[in-house]
Write a protein that binds this DNA or RNA. Structure first.
Lengths: 218, 218
DNA sequence: ACTTAGAGATTTGTACACAATAAAAAGCCG
DNA sequence: CGGCTTTTTATTGTGTACAAATCTCTAAGT
């Protein structure tokens, strides 16, 4: 059992609040205010801010405090463009490196997700979707890739609410894209796995970005 | 003119010392010791440590302080595998997105590097090599990619000494690989640019890793 | 002689006070 | 009245003291 420090606990809390949307992009975090809120001094708050900064959830400038990152369409496009390639790479590596057991597992997850599609259970599908993607990240056997992707997805998650919304329309499409992806990985087809994942993330991102553009007409 | 805070200055110093090899991988950084060294209190040191952590140059555990990251062969392989794909992607995007001026500029840098090859000026070649790569990163028009690559290269730079050593042997090979790469970007050939860069980084990494394996026989 | 328990020393974590910087408000001059 | 300078205020940066945790070295016990 590891004894978490106060800074760590506060980091976890703030991190969750930011990701859940309780603390919104662009919002400033004031040291004293949060210190009062948690009933501690400013010191561990500052440490927690640094952890948030490391996670890429906030940005900080000297003498100006920290604010939750605010991503515009261009930045989101950049991040999705990178994510698309990195996840596609993971898929290719997974097609090469996964054990037989791992391949069976993603096949099972995919089968389970079929039920979620039929019952239109978006939450359940999202959960299985996450499991499949995570399994493929691990299947790549590359920690650097996993960490980079995890960080990107964490930052992108601040803008996932519309994604869940959009997801309802893309439920069946997503399922079919997964089908192609899982099939390729099980067959050990590097190139098809790469293309299938690249296509899948591309479609996902297009949906999200289109939605954001429609929401925020400049 | 921005007024740098003490934490920032100390971060810059420590960062430079770590990258230059003055502070070695695995070495522990003690707050009080460094505070005395710089003639300040522990507080800004702790802030500087957080910045180092964000850069990925050190790792920290609760109540155990921070230590300079120590990468084994597997981790280096992972990082190079990721770097290879990311840089290749940048090359592809640059082939599509660079302006005519930018294409001329990398051509010019490449031409200059030819002289460095003939005079066997490794330092000069390394400098131009960096410029070419940086230009290609910028040519991708993708900030996320640029930052991710920059961070990876920074961490890898702790182990670049043998690379510079090895580089002497790879001087001409590197130049020829660059030639193919630059040619592809100027011609706007996405796929050739991708393959050329992927091949180039792959060769570079193999050299480095082979060297490290020969140095550290398990 | 080796292991283990514990006291002391060392190091990191937190609280609080003060200094420095930047933002906001008030005052001054045209 | 408007633009600029000065003063005030609020927020972050730094120093210092103390608490908590870890490490180390000693000593007792098997």
């Amino acid at each position: 059992m590891s004894t978490l420090t106060i800074s760590d606990k506060i980091y976890n809390q703030l991190s969750a609040q930011i990701i859940s949307g309780e603390i919104k992009p662009g919002q400033k975090l004031e040291e004293q205010e949060i210190a009062n809120q948690f009933g501690v001094s400013r010191t561990p708050i500052r440490e927690a801010f640094r952890l948030l900064h490391t996670s890429g959830l906030v940005e900080s400038k000297a003498h100006k405090g920290v604010t939750v990152i605010e991503l515009d369409i261009d930045q989101l496009s950049d991040m999705y463009e990178a994510l698309q390639e990195l996840e596609a790479l993971c898929a290719r590596l997974s097609a090469e490196r996964m054990t037989a057991v791992e391949r069976k597992q993603i096949q099972r997850m995919h089968q389970l997700s079929e039920e979620a599609v039929h019952s239109e259970d978006v939450e359940r599908f999202a959960e299985l979707n996450n499991q499949i993607h995570t399994a493929i990240h691990q299947g790549s056997r590359n920690k650097t890739l996993q960490e980079t992707i995890a960080k990107l997805r964490k930052r992108l998650s601040l803008y996932r609410q519309p994604w869940l919304f959009e997801k309802r329309n893309r439920l069946e499409a997503s399922y079919r894209e997964h089908a192609e992806l899982v099939e390729a990985i099980i067959a050990g087809d590097r190139d098809q796995a790469f293309d299938a994942m690249r296509n899948h993330i591309s479609n996902t991102s297009l949906g999200t970005i289109d939605y954001l553009i429609s929401q925020k007409p400049l």
